[in-house]
Every structure is written in C-alpha cells, then in structure tokens.
C-alpha cells in the first residue's frame, strides 16, 4: 500500500473518444464496449513501478461533453499529468485538440505533462487521422504521442506509465515543487522529509494559489 510518490492525472478530450475505457483498461484490465456517458468526473487509481519505486496514480476521468466543461476545468490546476485523447476514426475529435490544449494550458500549472493519445488504433479500417498527423501535432506543441487501443489494451499501460516517467524525470530535475500539493504530486507517507505534514506552510501556498 505504501508508495514513494503519488501523481494526480486527468484524462480529457471530446466525448466518446474512449477516455473512460482507457481508465477501465488501465485500472481493471477489462474493456466495456458499451459505456455510460460520464457525468462530471469519475475516479480511478492504480499502483505502478518506475525506477524501482512504487508510484500511486490517482486518475480523474472527465466528461467530454461541453456541458461539463466548467466542472472539468476545476481539475486542471491540481494535476501533474494529463492524457489528451482523440479518436483516430473521427477527424473532428482531432480538430478540437487545439481548443483542449488551450484550455489545459490556461488552467493548469505550467509543468503539467501532457500526453497526446490517438485511441481506437484497433479500428485501422475506419481510420481518418493518420499517425503522422498525430505525431506532427505532438511535435509542434511539445507533447508526447502514442496511439492506443482501449479495446485490445495496446499501448494503454505504456501511455500511463510513460507519462509518469516524464513526471518522475521532472521531479528529479527539480522542475516540480513537490511540497506544493497543487502540483498534483505527493510524497509517500514514509518518504517525506522530517515533518510529514506542513501545517504552517499553508499560508504561502494559499496566497500564491492563483499561480496560473
């Protein structure tokens, strides 16, 4: 149960691109062909190992519908990683990426790692967005890119784990301030420095709360 780090993730993208299915495949290792529309936000969690360290991923799967946009925006600020998902069989979901990215960049902290994911790679026959286009978009905006299939589980593990690796590297480089929980990173209970909770440090964090 113990972990060295805890990372908070969010999954964003248009409705129906398979965000909830990606999460289900990652946490429960199963695929549900018919999935209810996500209302607001749903939570999932799993433990992974990076560099020999246990890392707990807490993932918030958001609703893609426009109606929930203002709710889902509340989750950007406290996340360390984001999976931005589109559907390779629906060009419009790819076209909306710019809007999503702007939204994310505006509301999140600047260090948030964003992974671009082209989902439904098992439906090669109905492909509308070429892999090269996804790669180009990712290169242009400084994102990591991967094509996945929540159905066959192809690359699903990799998507979550590679994002975590990136966050982990940023911690090692000192880019993230790990004592500020608003970054979406927490140190495990027994891994914290001398004092586990910092009750008096709250004020500074609170004043600078609107850092974005």
């Amino acid at each position: 149960m113990s972990y060295a780090y805890l990372f908070k993730y969010i999954i964003i993208g248009d409705t129906g691109v398979g965000k909830s299915c990606l999460l289900l495949q990652f946490t429960d290792k199963r695929f549900q062909p018919v999935h209810d529309l996500t209302i607001g936000v749903e939570f999932g969690a799993r433990m992974i190992t990076i560099d020999g360290k246990q890392i707990k991923l807490q993932i918030w799967d958001t609703a893609g519908q426009e109606a929930f946009r203002s709710i889902t925006r509340s989750y950007y600020r406290g996340a360390a990683g984001a999976l931005l998902v589109y559907d390779i069989t629906r060009r419009d979901t790819f076209n909306h990426l710019t809007t999503w990215l702007e939204d994310a960049r505006q509301h999140s902290n600047s260090n948030m790692v964003i992974m671009l994911i082209g989902n439904k790679s098992d439906l090669e026959g109905r492909r509308e967005v070429k892999r090269e286009e996804g790669e180009a978009f990712a290169r242009e905006h400084g994102l990591i890119f991967m094509e996945t299939s929540a159905k066959t589980a192809a690359n699903v593990e990799e998507a979550f784990i590679n994002t975590a690796k990136e966050v982990y590297e940023k911690i090692q480089e000192g880019v993230f301030d790990i004592n500020n929980e608003a970054n979406g990173i927490k140190i495990g209970p027994q891994h914290s420095p001398t004092n586990p909770s910092l009750p008096s440090g709250g004020q500074g964090g609170m004043q600078g709360g609107g850092c974005c």
Binding site: S70, R73, S74, R77, G78, H107, G202, Q203, G205, M206, G209, G210
Partner: peptide, 13 residues
Amino acid sequence: PMGVSKLMDLLSD
C-alpha cells in the same frame, strides 16, 4: 472558473 478551488484554499487560512 476555479470557484471551488478558491474556497478550498480557505481551509489553509
């Protein structure tokens, strides 16, 4: 925007 987050910060006051 960030309405709830602002309220949450108050708990650390």
